[in-house]
Design a protein around this nucleic acid. Structure first.
Lengths: 134, 134
DNA sequence: TTACTATTAAGAAGCATTTGCAGTTAAAAT
DNA sequence: ATTTTAACTGCAAATGCTTCTTAATAGTAA
């Protein structure tokens, strides 16, 4: 059982992984491009983008902020949680109690101030799920 | 006292708020534009964007996915939480235990399947905080 | 009413990301 | 070790979301 789908380990891909794993700074694509360029001066930004996409869909790295390209807006301001369908992008509210206690934990562990939080769930929405079972 | 900072309640702004509060679908700016157009056919998309920005900075609505314009990447795949500085955009890992139990709660409340979760904290990082105190 | 200034519509500009293409190369097949 | 072939690369151009520019409009205060 392997998730390798005819993917080649090119020099570019190898070095992108290595450089990303070296740091804890959660770089953007262009920051990573700069880092990789120190070792592969001719690598293009689109190669970095392409590989980041491939690697994250293989589960080898994590793409953050991967919600989607467009921002969404909510008329409700009080903190509440959301769940997003990974198939169709639909977003619903999750009606559950919030857990503000974790903010104090995060504050202590991170030494950030004025800590707030959001939780975002991801899953398959009822529509997409029923479609997938015919 | 009031949080009104020389902001005018124009017809456009009023209707944008009303339409957003009517729904629970977390629309994107262009979806909301379409909704508002039913009542104000000549409103422009940039007016919608401008007002959504104003309203969310006033705290009257919530802007989701407001992380930033660029995606970030993480070499660590196992679920862990992040904290982001609202001043400088810096992102750090938060070393605390994850709480997978909430996924079951969210699954029951939402009727989504295969639920996973992330928590994102927001705060002021040590650098920005020490700057702000001179 | 008059003056003042925030706001608007329309379109251009900005910027992150994706895509088309022609040449290259990793790696499977021979 | 060669051949083969489809994935991959660099580059440029395209795309798509969001913000900015500008001249005109319209709330608001006096």
């Amino acid at each position: 059982m392997h998730t390798q789908l005819n993917h080649r380990m090119t020099k570019q891909r190898q070095i992108i992984i290595e450089e990303l794993r070296k740091v804890t700074s959660h770089p953007t694509a262009d920051q990573l491009h700069e880092m990789v360029r120190k070792r592969l001066p001719r690598i293009s930004l689109s190669t970095v983008y392409r590989n980041l996409e491939t690697l994250s869909s293989e589960g080898m790295i994590l793409k953050m902020d991967s919600a989607g390209t467009q921002k969404r807006f909510d008329g409700t301001v009080e903190n509440h949680y959301h769940i997003r369908c990974s198939r169709c992008g639909r977003v619903d509210d999750v009606h559950m109690e919030t857990i503000p206690e974790i903010e104090e934990i995060a504050r202590r562990r991170s030494s950030y101030q004025s800590v707030s939080h959001i939780i975002e769930f991801t899953g398959i929405c009822p529509n997409c799920y029923s479609q997938s079972r015919g």
